[in-house]
Write a protein that binds this DNA or RNA. Structure first.
Length: 792
DNA sequence: GTCTAGTTAATTTTT
DNA sequence: TTAACTAGAC
């Protein structure tokens, strides 16, 4: 009986239908929290167990490394004893990289091609512009970069672009630069992210033999987050599945695509995602069945009711309604605040009160539309000694000082890597400036050499400095010959003098960059371990036929998986992140902050995208709401410090779109000034017409004007005093007072981490440990006796 | 060549 | 506010 089947037991009927669906193309519309990952992995396990696919016949694609890691782990758990080795589970870019490394020659690439990230790509674009004599007053480098990426994502080479692009001013110039950029990338053997996709797509299109091979191999293709695919990714999938050329193949002749997605959670149109792929997929590949996963296992009724109603305001939808049998739960709390700072204090106070009732800090997430909003919240959490962690920001291998080291490694791997050369040559400063580099570039161009190659051709005063740099890199190569990857990294750190340079900088700026540099050695060791490479293997020696050197593989991985910055992910800390970053996550308690018109929905979206922009913002709000499991707060402020000035704000129109039965309005702090206007705490807006007035003055006679008691402890302060407010309200948050004079709430300074606040104290005597939240470095555990902590 | 003071603009972001 | 970039002084 199916009930006994461990693979399908516990699945609801729709999930089960998806998991055990016949071998046809199918679209699974998976609502938020509907158990989509489980369906995907169970599907794979089921296909293999039923003998419909061999592990090597499975291709499963995700967008993020995290998602693919999770998927692989879950598959392995679900089919113990079955090897997943032959499966291709990875990101689009990861899989394309794999494909291109194997078939580099056929794809017209050097086998050890370098992958460049966005920042590198921008500097290449700038270089191209300079060489072409195009200044930034003609066209912004960033616009050129966007243009190139967009063209590639539509599958267009410079030679294939037809009309001028409507979205780009000076599209003709952009096209010229695209052409030059293509040439330069080929010459230097560099490949950007979009190029990974386009190259491997073209490879499959043009090389019959290779296409056949993979077509025959991958009988089952599974795609996660299908709504986020761009045009090129969709074509890539079709090609692999055997639909790449000509009309739709005969039933049963092609491979099948199992696409899982949610059009309501499409929030990446701005980077090329095309929701239309869902419709195209259905139409073009003859999808006869759309399975809807609408039962939600995450949230309670009021939260889902709000989400459903809100997203119902969108016009273009495939249609879906989430439901739960978990009960109504508590209503959503709406909190109007006089200022952004007051909003932050409200959030902190609610968190602290929840924490004192037994909730862990990690159960709380504070979401915002734009990163700048985190500052106000951070400072209040910091002052209150509440540990927090910010998601996002620069990841390990994207940090400038880490990329400096990588540039040297890239030069060691390939001395003609001009991008790396330009980065490394004057970092740390060694007297090689713009003039010298211009001359060098000219020499290189004339002699058809790489920058490094042209160094020996240079004459004059600057030449000796350049030659010194060339010898430095060659010296590193010689010293590293026969040595392991970790040794190589150590050698680079020493000889480049980056280690000393950043150690010195850290002393002056109280930063901790040198620590990151040392961490690269660990990252290299971890890489060797996870890739199953002998830790003593020669870093520069290819490991076998068709295999890259450990160094090459490490560099590719560093770009492709820039590494999370989740240091301290285990710590019990409040989670701060943008709504985008929250996608795919869930939390018991969620605060959605800054619910103001022009902030959320964001003005730029409205301005550029019109109605479509508003709809994407609404989907973003939908994503935000559906992150909450138990409790949801919506907050907004009358005044907010944005772009250096205070601005008067109006509440978000999204608030009007949530039926009032799901909401409970919290009372705003007392003493609200007249200029800040009224709070509509009675139960939302009283009709859209009057509501549009936003914060405009309250009609006299309203019962709650004037001196109303605040529902929580803060009293509202006039602005000015407000922004620096750091007063008595932090005091009640402090509880533990311990020996050695350390106590939670103590402000401290650390030579490396800078200023911070003690969050907790544990242990005693010499083993007294303090947990400190630092402004720049996050939360750290320190031994009080050892760390050079200074009370301030 | 390098350092510093002044100007400008301002979502969201994974690979 | 702040980060990124440019112009001008040393």
């Amino acid at each position: 009986m199916t009930q006994e089947d461990p693979l399908t037991a516990g699945l609801n009927p729709q999930q089960r239908e998806a998991v055990t669906f016949p071998d046809q193309n199918v679209l699974v519309l998976a609502g938020a929290g509907s158990g989509k990952t489980r369906v995907l992995t169970s599907r794979i396990a089921w296909l293999i167990r039923e003998g419909r696919a061999r592990p090597s016949g499975i291709l499963a694609v995700t967008f993020t490394n995290k998602a693919s890691r999770e998927m692989l782990e879950r598959i392995e758990r679900q089919m113990p004893g079955v090897s997943t080795r032959g499966m291709w589970v990875g990101t689009f870019h990861g899989l394309c990289n794999r494909l291109l490394r194997v078939h580099a020659a056929e794809a017209g690439l050097q086998p050890s091609f370098q992958i460049i990230d966005q920042a590198d790509q921008l500097s290449v674009v700038k270089r191209v512009m300079k060489a072409a004599g195009v200044g930034k007053e003609t066209i912004e480098p960033r616009a050129v970069q966007n243009y190139i990426s967009r063209m590639k994502e539509e599958g267009l080479r410079a030679s294939e672009v037809k009309g001028p692009d409507m979205h780009t001013a000076n599209a003709a110039v952009a096209l010229q630069l695209y052409r030059a950029y293509e040439r330069l990338c080929v010459e230097e053997g560099i490949v950007d992210f979009a190029e990974l996709l386009l190259r491997s797509y073209e490879l499959l299109q043009r090389n019959e033999l290779i296409r056949r091979h993979y077509e025959q191999r991958f009988s089952h293709i599974l795609v996660d987050e299908f709504q986020d695919t761009n045009v090129l990714q969709y074509r890539w999938l079709k090609t692999l599945a055997g639909y790449g050329r000509g009309p739709v193949r005969e039933e049963g002749a092609a491979n099948t695509i199992f696409a899982v997605g949610d059009d309501d959670q499409s929030i990446y149109a701005f980077r090329g995602a095309n929701v239309g792929n869902m419709d195209d997929f259905r139409r073009e590949l003859g999808v006869r069945k759309v399975i809807r996963l609408e039962q939600n296992y995450r949230s309670t009724g009021h939260i889902l009711g709000a989400a459903n109603a809100l997203i119902g305001c969108n016009t273009k939808r495939l249609g879906k309604n989430l439901w739960t049998d978990a009960g109504e739960g508590s209503r959503i709390q709406v909190m109007p605040c006089p200022s952004g700072e007051a909003e932050a204090r409200f959030v902190a106070e609610e968190i602290e009160s929840g924490h004192s009732r037994g909730r862990a800090y990690r159960d709380f997430a504070v979401l915002y539309r734009s990163n700048a909003q985190s500052r106000a919240i951070e400072s209040v959490l910091m002052a209150g000694g509440i540990p927090y962690r910010i998601y996002g920001g620069h990841r390990f291998f994207e940090r400038a000082h880490v990329k400096d080291v990588l540039a040297y490694l890239r030069l060691v791997e390939n001395p003609s890597d001009n991008t790396a050369f330009l980065r490394a040559v004057n970092t740390p400063a060694r007297g090689v400036g713009a003039k010298t580099l211009e001359k060098l570039a000219e020499t290189a161009r004339a002699a058809d050499l790489s920058l490094m190659g042209a160094v020996s051709e240079m004459k004059g005063a600057a030449a000796s400095k350049l030659r010194g740099f060339g010898e430095l890199v060659m010296g590193i190569r010689r010293a590293a010959s026969g040595r392991s990857l970790t040794d190589l990294v150590r050698i680079v750190l020493e000889r480049s003098t980056l280690k000393a340079y950043y150690a010195d900088l850290d002393r002056r700026e109280k930063s901790a960059k040198a620590e990151d540099l040392a961490e690269i050695v660990n990252a290299a060791a971890a890489f060797l371990k996870s890739a199953d490479i002998d830790p003593e293997a020669d870093a520069m020696e290819p490991r076998g036929e068709d295999e890259l050197s450990p160094l090459s593989s490490f560099l590719a991985l560093a770009t492709l998986e820039a590494g999370d910055n989740q240091a301290g992910a285990e710590a019990d800390a409040v989670q701060l992140m943008t709504v985008h970053a929250a996608k795919g996550l869930e939390f018991p308690v969620v605060f959605i902050t800054g619910l103001e018109e022009n902030l959320f929905p964001h003005v730029s979206s409205l301005r550029e995208g019109g109605q479509a922009g508003r709809e994407e913002e609404r989907r973003l709000m939908y994503v935000a709401i559906t992150r909450a499991k138990r409790e949801l707060y919506l907050t907004y402020a009358a005044r907010r410090f944005i772009n250096g000035t205070y601005q008067n704000e109006q509440q978000s129109s999204f608030l009007d779109e949530i039926p009032r039965e799901h909401l409970v309005w919290r009372r705003s702090p007392a003493g609200l000034s007249e200029e800040a206007g009224a709070w509509d705490e009675g139960g939302g807006r009283r009709g859209a017409a009057s509501a549009r007035g936003g914060w405009a003055g309250r009609r006299s006679g309203d019962e709650d004007s004037g001196q109303e008691r605040a529902s929580y402890g803060y009293s509202w302060r006039p602005r000015g005093a407000d922004s620096s407010y750091n007063g008595s309200k932090t005091e009640p948050l402090l509880k533990k007072r311990t020996e050695a004079g350390w106590s939670a709430g103590q402000h401290v300074r650390h030579p490396k981490f800078g200023k911070g606040v003690v969050i907790s104290v544990s242990g005693s005597g010499a083993l007294t440990k303090v947990q400190v939240a630092f402004a720049g470095a996050g939360v750290k555990q320190l031994l009080a006796a050892m760390a050079k902590l200074e009370k301030i």
